[in-house]
């Protein structure tokens, strides 16, 4: 999978813009994460609009890409078995969350911490492809999203987060 195979994102699909960016960021590092971010984006975007020309065109390309990834990753348990996939995405999200949380509690505030909190919150969204997410994960998601916005804002204003 070379280059960017997807057409420009239709405005109607803005809600999955960051999930798709996370997929691209993980293409080489962790293709399982990339795959499930795209699967989540596909499901979410289909529910938004699968009829208008530009949206349908985008969805077809995204589906092509998912099918291509699935073929390429046939030997990977986390792709062929969604239970394994769910555990993979959940562990990854919780590891990112812990990394950000430990830094936050140690008083380390930087863009990496913001991004880790934010990416963790996006991956908690992605877990919805496997079904409803637990109360505990919902709390993690809410906290991660709030923290990333708060620290980002503090860094922007030059203030020290409390």
């Amino acid at each position: 999978a070379a280059g960017s195979p997807l057409p420009p994102l239709p405005a109607a699909f803005k809600a999955v813009q960051h999930h798709l960016k996370t997929a691209t960021d993980h293409e080489k590092r962790d293709p399982v994460i990339a795959y499930y971010c795209r699967l989540y984006s596909m499901q979410t975007a289909m529910a938004i609009d699968s009829k208008s020309n530009d949206c349908r065109g985008f969805l077809i390309k995204l589906m092509d890409l998912l099918e291509q990834m699935k073929t390429q990753l046939q030997g990977t348990d986390a792709i062929t078995n969604e239970v394994v996939g769910q555990a993979h995405v959940e562990n990854y999200a919780l590891r990112l969350f812990s990394f950000a949380d430990n830094n936050d509690r140690a008083g380390t505030f930087n863009k990496t911490v913001v991004k880790s909190f934010y990416t963790a919150s996006l991956l908690f969204d992605v877990l919805q492809v496997f079904g409803e997410i637990s109360e505990d994960l919902l709390k993690h998601r809410k906290y991660a999203r709030w923290k990333s916005a708060y620290i980002h804002d503090c860094l922007r204003k030059g203030e020290t987060p409390i």
């Binding site: 596909m42 499901q43 289909m46 699968s50 349908r56 969805l59 998912l66 699935k70």
Partner: peptide
């Protein structure tokens, strides 16, 4: 009854994507 054909085309297109999605997750 002449307008029945149009919405069914749109839903067929949606169905095709839904089917591909279901197949993707079954493999």
């Amino acid at each position: 009854t002449s307008t029945i054909g149009t919405p069914s085309t749109a839903s067929e297109q949606q169905d095709e994507l839904s089917q591909r999605l279901a197949q993707l997750r079954q493999m």
